[in-house]
Write a protein that binds this DNA or RNA. Structure first.
Lengths: 235, 235
DNA sequence: ACAAAAGTGTTATACTTACACCCATGT
DNA sequence: ACATGGGTGTAAGTATAACACTTTTGT
């Protein structure tokens, strides 16, 4: 036990721990919600599937570490991320005692550094087909999915999974994937448009139909107004 | 860097951190929601207000540490607790870099070890009158309160704040305190009783009126049936 | 002309909200 | 007898859920 200025250092008598962060990275493509998983090229557990993770460094906050880890894999910055908690069972990492703070991230699946991801052996896997992952990563995924489900119903975070311009059929299929449920087309559109937080453009997406679907844009200013008027985004 | 069996130890090159847990302890008394806070008798920040906390030890999970810290203050075991996350800003504890996992606990305010709590300088403070707390503890409290609000509306956790037997006026005033809002007596009772998860007893609580209010008991078995039938607790 | 997805309104039902009086009992 | 909190039902309004046809356009 050390002393400084005559007082016992109250910290040094305690244990210190390795702390990691793990990222549950959601993307959306062709009607299915996916996770960016790693086929590990390194130990421990080489060859197995896992979330992208990394150790916390002395000079960074936990949030910053999560952002760094995400950026290391995808090249992306300023991504929507939420902490889902810290996992600290004694034997969660059989190699050593490591605590892990889990975060989920929502990214636009066609806007990230593909070479970089590939260099880490990263693969998009449909949320319905997640394999066995190392440690407690499956548990993290379950919790992240549950939180996404809950939060997406009540805050406009789904848009982070789409390009800036999106169509209403696209949006509906996104929410169907998140909620794991089908939605009525007319009711869905009515409800969303009634909130008046979208800007309709003149452009159409003709990749899915001859007729084409109008592109919309989420309008953050209108959303702010909505919230200030005491209302909420809700599906 | 050390080697074992010829492989480099992948962990040792990383930093290690002090990890604390802090408990936001909710109680309910006479129509107001309260927190059990500590007037610190020790450094750092002697004399200031804080949450009850403690350091994580090598041989315990984070959840177990939270339970231990709660027990150290209240003598209670098997208490309803939820982790709200880990806080890891660089300077959150000005003395040293310490990460802290925050948990909230719901306890029955007239069932804990009062001498023990007193020996730690613990005091019940109405949630509406929380003073400035050390570090980021006010932030933890805000988040805990928000989560309690959200979760109490949708899961039957409020009962943890009441004795086994409670009256409907009591229950209503509890939910009013949690939601920070008044509720209509008739609608409240209708909704709750419609879920059919209460057992009405023959006993009455006459401490608040001449007539007396019937004691009820939350019935976990009936609640399980409710959930299995696909319905949910909801207020 | 036809196939395929986009777009559009109405009605029935369930849920939510508002609201006022009688009851039981101790003093 | 009266003061105090406990207990009860109904009606109006609002939100949700169910449902089917027309439009556009590329082939």
């Amino acid at each position: 036990m050390s002393e400084t200025n005559g007082i016992v250092n109250l910290y040094e008598q305690n244990d210190r721990f390795y702390v990691a962060v793990d990222c549950i990275i959601f993307g959306f493509h062709q009607g299915t919600l996916k996770l960016l998983l790693i086929k590990r090229k390194f130990d421990p557990c080489m060859g197995e599937w896992s979330l992208m993770g990394g150790f916390l460094n002395k000079d960074e906050s936990i949030d910053a570490a999560a952002e760094r880890v995400l950026q290391d894999l995808t090249g992306l910055e300023n991504v929507y991320m939420e902490q889902i908690g810290i996992f600290g069972e004694l034997d969660r990492d059989p190699g050593e005692r490591v605590l892990s703070a889990a975060y989920y991230a929502l990214i636009n699946i066609d806007d990230y550094d593909k070479e970089l991801a590939e260099s880490h052996n990263a693969v998009w896997v449909p949320i319905t087909e997640i394999p066995d992952l190392i440690f407690d990563h499956n548990k993290m995924v379950r919790i992240a999915q549950k939180q996404l489900k809950r939060k997406a119903a009540v805050e406009p975070i789904g848009f982070n999974l789409l390009p800036e311009l999106f169509t209403l059929p696209q949006l509906q299929s996104l929410y169907e994937a998140i909620f794991g449920d089908t939605l009525d087309k007319r009711n869905f559109r009515k409800k969303l448009l009634a909130m008046d937080v979208f800007e309709k453009t003149e452009e159409k997406d003709k990749s899915n139909s001859k007729r084409g679907a109008y592109y919309y844009r989420f309008d953050y200013d209108k959303y702010t107004e909505l919230v200030q008027s005491g209302l909420r985004f809700a599906l």
